[in-house]
């Protein structure tokens, strides 16, 4: 019988403690961010989709069309198009297509890239209702950045 009352008392006490905690939290400031109006600074290592690095010296990309990124990609989302051009050693990049719908942001392409020609972008506002919006032509993107 004593246990019966003790249970009721301790149980009620735990309930009151719980209520006091939530009531206290009620008066604290919200910790959420109102996303479309406020947005966070992405951390330097944030992995957006990949993009071509703009070389400070030449003002253009560093890609040598070796295709290592394409080979290393687990999901096959990169297509590098390079062609021979007169008077230029090696191939010249004419198209760098990224199918971001397949990308898993693992970073294999960036690790495989000898000349460090690609990097992660900081893009994260990437909502769309169409699949085609996630097929990027990175070369065009780089040119538009200029």
């Amino acid at each position: 019988m004593a246990g019966y009352f003790k249970n009721i008392l301790s149980g009620s006490w735990s309930l009151i403690v719980g209520l006091s905690i939530t009531q206290k939290e009620f008066f604290k400031k919200p910790v959420t961010l109102q996303y479309p109006w406020e947005s966070l600074e992405m951390s330097p290592r944030f992995r957006g989709h990949i993009q071509l690095v703009k070389d400070a010296e030449s003002g253009t990309h560093r890609c040598i069309c070796c295709g290592m990124c394409e080979k290393g990609c687990p999901s096959g989302c990169i297509t590098v198009k390079g062609e021979k051009q007169e008077g230029v050693k090696g191939k010249v990049l004419v198209g760098y297509d990224l199918d971001f719908t397949k990308c898993s942001l693992c970073g294999q392409c960036i690790e495989n890239c000898k000349p460090a020609a690609i990097e992660f972008s900081k893009e994260y506002n990437l909502a769309s209702t169409r699949k085609e919006d996630f097929h990027y032509d990175l070369l065009k993107r780089l040119k538009e950045q200029k």
């Binding site: 939530t22 910790v31 951390s43 330097p44 290592r45 944030f46 992995r47 898993s104 942001l105």
Partner: peptide, 28 residues
């Protein structure tokens, strides 16, 4: 309610891990 309190703390971890790994959930 405890779910959102836990999320509050978890977000801190995700921020820390994002600063290191660059991802928030599916780390590689």
């Amino acid at each position: 309610t405890p779910l959102l309190y836990a999320f509050d703390d978890r977000e801190q971890i995700l921020d820390l891990l994002e600063a290191v790994t660059g991802a928030r959930l599916t780390y590689c």
